[in-house]
Measured scan of single mutants.
Amino acid sequence: MAIVADHLGLSWTELARELNFSVDEINQIRVENPNSLISQSFMLLKKWVTRDGKNATTDALTSVLTKINRIDIVTLLE
């Protein structure tokens, strides 16, 4: 997760939308982690794993990252 969080940057909100997080949930992550995109990205991934449990797999994440054109991160995960 740390590799993904380190590289997402501003794309974390796009990833959040693709992972079916609501606008309110995205804003809450922003408010709770106001000074760091990496912290926002990491919190998103943590919430995703908590919410989706065993369905929050590397394959699922890779699929969504591909959908938002972040092949650079997919390559890092391989």
Rank of each mutant, 00 (worst) to 15 (best):
M1H: 05
M1G: 05
M1T: 02
M1D: 04
A2I: 11
I3Y: 05
I3T: 10
I3E: 07
I3P: 06
I3D: 05
I3H: 05
V4T: 08
V4W: 00
V4K: 02
V4Q: 04
A5S: 10
A5C: 07
A5H: 03
D6F: 04
D6N: 12
D6P: 08
H7L: 07
H7D: 02
H7W: 02
H7G: 03
H7T: 09
L8V: 03
L8H: 00
L8W: 05
G9A: 05
G9Q: 06
G9S: 05
G9F: 01
L10D: 13
L10M: 11
L10W: 11
L10S: 15
L10Y: 11
S11I: 06
S11Y: 05
S11D: 15
S11P: 00
S11Q: 12
W12R: 02
W12Y: 02
W12V: 03
W12I: 03
W12P: 06
T13R: 07
T13F: 13
T13K: 05
E14R: 08
E14V: 13
L15K: 02
L15V: 12
L15I: 06
L15H: 03
L15R: 01
L15G: 01
A16S: 01
R17M: 12
R17D: 09
E18R: 00
E18T: 06
E18W: 02
E18H: 07
L19I: 07
L19E: 01
L19W: 05
L19V: 04
L19M: 07
L19R: 02
N20F: 09
N20Y: 07
N20D: 15
F21C: 00
F21I: 04
F21M: 05
F21S: 01
S22P: 10
V23G: 13
V23F: 10
V23M: 11
D24W: 06
D24F: 04
E25I: 03
E25G: 02
E25F: 03
E25P: 00
I26G: 00
I26K: 00
I26V: 11
I26M: 05
I26L: 00
I26W: 01
I26C: 05
N27V: 06
N27C: 08
Q28F: 06
Q28N: 09
I29N: 09
I29T: 03
I29W: 00
R30P: 08
R30A: 13
V31F: 11
V31I: 13
V31S: 13
V31D: 15
V31C: 14
E32L: 08
E32C: 08
E32P: 05
E32W: 02
E32K: 06
N33E: 14
N33I: 08
N33F: 11
P34I: 00
P34L: 01
P34V: 00
N35E: 11
N35C: 08
N35T: 13
N35S: 09
N35Q: 11
N35L: 04
N35K: 07
N35Y: 07
N35P: 04
S36Y: 02
S36T: 07
S36D: 15
S36W: 05
S36E: 09
L37V: 14
L37A: 11
L37P: 11
L37D: 08
I38F: 09
I38P: 12
I38T: 10
S39H: 11
S39A: 14
S39D: 13
S39Q: 15
Q40N: 00
Q40Y: 04
S41Y: 04
S41A: 14
S41F: 02
S41D: 03
F42E: 14
F42G: 15
F42V: 14
M43H: 14
M43Q: 13
M43A: 14
M43D: 14
M43I: 06
M43G: 14
M43F: 08
L44F: 11
L44M: 12
L44Y: 04
L45W: 01
L45G: 01
L45D: 00
L45V: 04
K46W: 05
K46E: 13
K46N: 12
K46C: 06
K46G: 07
K47N: 13
K47H: 11
K47I: 04
K47P: 00
K47L: 11
K47W: 10
W48A: 00
W48L: 03
V49Y: 14
V49C: 11
T50S: 13
T50K: 15
T50P: 00
T50F: 08
T50M: 14
T50Y: 13
R51P: 03
R51L: 02
R51D: 04
R51Y: 03
D52I: 08
D52W: 01
D52H: 05
G53E: 11
G53Y: 00
K54T: 10
N55R: 12
N55F: 10
N55C: 10
N55L: 13
N55S: 13
N55E: 11
N55M: 12
A56S: 05
A56F: 07
A56N: 05
A56V: 13
T57R: 05
T57A: 09
T57W: 00
T57I: 03
D59N: 08
D59R: 12
A60H: 15
A60L: 12
L61K: 03
L61W: 00
T62I: 06
T62V: 12
T62F: 09
S63F: 10
S63N: 11
S63A: 13
S63Y: 13
V64F: 15
V64D: 02
L65S: 01
L65H: 00
L65M: 04
T66M: 12
T66Y: 13
T66I: 11
K67N: 06
K67Q: 12
K67V: 08
K67M: 14
I68F: 00
I68E: 00
I68R: 00
N69W: 00
N69D: 09
N69K: 11
N69G: 15
R70A: 01
R70N: 10
I71C: 09
I71G: 15
I71L: 15
I71S: 12
I71Q: 15
I71P: 12
I71K: 14
I73F: 01
I73Q: 00
I73G: 00
I73M: 05
I73D: 04
V74K: 08
V74C: 09
V74W: 00
V74F: 00
V74A: 08
T75G: 13
T75H: 08
T75R: 13
T75K: 15
L76R: 14
L76Q: 14
L76Y: 05
L76P: 06
L77E: 01
L77H: 03
L77F: 05
E78F: 10
E78Y: 10
E78A: 11
E78H: 13
E78R: 08
